[in-house]
Every structure is written in structure tokens, then in C-alpha cells.
Nucleic acid binder design. Sequence first.
DNA 1: CGACGTGTAAC
DNA 2: CCTTTTACACGTCG
Length: 360
Amino acid sequence: MQRIVLHVDMDSFFAALEELRRPEIRGKAVVVCVYSGRTSDSGAVSTANYRARELGIKSGMTIYSAKRLAMDKDVVFLPVDMEHYRAVSLRIMELLSREADAVEQVSVDEAYLDITRRSKGDFLTAGKIGIKIKRKIKEQESLTCSVGIGHNKFVAKMASKRKKPDGLTVVKPEEVLAFLGDLPVAKLHGIGKKTEEALNELGIRTAKELLGSRVDVLFGVFGENKAKMLLDKASGIDDEPVEQHEMQQISRIGTLKHDSDDVDFVFQKIKEISVGMKENVEKRKVAFRTVSVITIDTQLETRTRSETIALTDDVEVALAVGRRLLAGFFGENPGIALRRVGIRVSNFVDKKKQRTLGDF
DNA sequence: CGACGTGTAAC
DNA sequence: CCTTTTACACGTCG
């Protein structure tokens, strides 16, 4: 049967949730921010609703820039409240799982659904399922979303991006090449700034041009694997199944109140942020073998240091290793001050071996 | 081959 | 002025 995948993307999710629970800001421009705590307005924009986007405010920009664009206008700035967004997200994912053969949540506001069986491989039926899902989310949560439907995850994702907000786009297999052809390469999911620049150097600007380019040149510039990946994207080829993945790592990162090269001061920050990491490690019931410290210096240069140890589920152990790694970093990088630090645990051991750990 | 570090990408 | 979290590919080293 023809595989059919549906992608759901909630419309300016965080901002929409804030509008829902604060009637007084409904209809206004809303900007949800990650405040770093350095100065009163340091940090970045997480989500701007469409009223705010009309002013040029976009996710990723600094709060400072956003406030400059907001000027004297009536714009509401709010801090993120992930706990609340996750709670609503959970309810939406439960709703989605009732409408699909399989669900893969890719972020707090996005999911892929395999609807092959329920649509019987028919795109007209799939479209009706898309409409039903949009209606149910609106009835239950008063939220809109954009839906894309295609014969694989990549095409479904590209389709959901086509019409926003509150969109529904169905792309049949025979329409894929025409659908992607004129898109600039950077619009293809998985192709970012660096790859775009490299492709532009070769005179390649659209998906169609990428497909028509010389394969030997692509191989030479990008290597075989990445060249093939690029060609697959340009032609809408993707065989990835819709399935929930196990988490591979858990990390937390934070911004220091001031730049510092003092081990004790920086480690204090690691201890603070490790509380959140510990909660997550315990919730997921994982045991890890690798601990990493992530450093971001005043020049915004990122480096990691890691160490693999005996299997443990104890974040205190991770902290002890983290302190060593941090001291090592400062020892080998005298005079480098940090702006941000992070800690990560990874190299999880599968559940069978975890049981062995629990037996002790 | 496992461990480690960096780069790229998306949210 | 410049946030957060995760994934994965690739090069290198021993």
C-alpha cells in the first residue's frame, strides 16, 4: 500500500498558549522570550505570534532587537513557561495518537503521523483525516495548526510549511518534483546556512538546479554521503519510518551572570543547572556512561570535553566528573573566560543492562 | 572500533 | 547584543 505520512505543526504554539490563558492580551502582538538573566533584556525570542511577526519580530532574534522593532507599539513580552506548554502538548499528542497508526513527536509542538492504514493509502482520505485532526485540536484546545501530507516524512514536513498558519497541504507523489522544484535550497528541511552557501558557490540556488547539477562536483565538494543526502532532499526521497526514538542524551546549559574564568564560580552554575538535568534523568530512568561539559567563551566559541566512566544513574557522580573536566579546560586554556556553561550525560545503556544495575 | 571533539541543523 | 536542547555526521587518535 502507498505509505502516507502526515505532519502537524502547531501555529506559534507558545504565543498562542499565552493568549489563551491571558484574555487581556488576545489579539495583541505577543513575543515569548528566553531571558538569560544577565541584564534585564538579555536573551532571545522563542516565539512571536503573527501580529508580532508583522513588525519584523522573529524567533531567534535578541530581545533587545525585538524591543527596538516594537518601539512605542503595543507589544506584550512574556517569559517562556515550558511546563505549561509541555502539559498542553501532552494532551495534543494523546489526541493525535488516537488518529494515527503510529506517532513520532519531534518537538513540543510538532509530530509525524503514519496514517497509511487509516487512509488505505488514499490521499483524498488522508486529506479528510487532516481536516478532522485540525477540527479536533481546535475543539479540544482552541488552537490552530498547519498540516502537511505526503508519501514520506520529508515531503509531509515540507508540505506543512507551505501554508501557515491554519494550513492544510496535500502533496501526492507525482506532484513532489513540481512542489519542490522552485524552492530555494535553504528552504529544504535539513539544509542550513552553511550548505546553502556552499551550494550557492556552485551556482545552485533551487531544488531543481540541485537535481540538475553534476553529481561528480557534488561528490567532490560534499563527499559521497552528504551529496546523496542533498539529492534525496531535492527529489523528495525519504525512507525514514514514523517511530518514536529513545533519547540519546540529556543536557542543560546556562548563562553566567558575568563572564568568568574561575572554576568555582563556573562550577557553581553547573551545579544549579544540574538540578533540572537530574529531574530529567530520574524521570527517564536512564543510566549513563559519558559525562560532558560544554563551554561557550566570550567569543561565543563552543567546546566540549567529555569522559566515559562506569555505568551510573547518579547525577552527583556526573557533577564530580564535570568538575574535573571544567578544571582541565581552564588549565589548558589560560586566560579564556566563559559566558555560558553546560553539562550533558549520554551513552545510555539499554533497559536490559539497566535492570542489572537496579539489582545491586 | 570506541572515545573524543567539532560542525551543522532544527526547534 | 548573541537562548536552549537534541541529533547526527565526520575526522582523528590510540
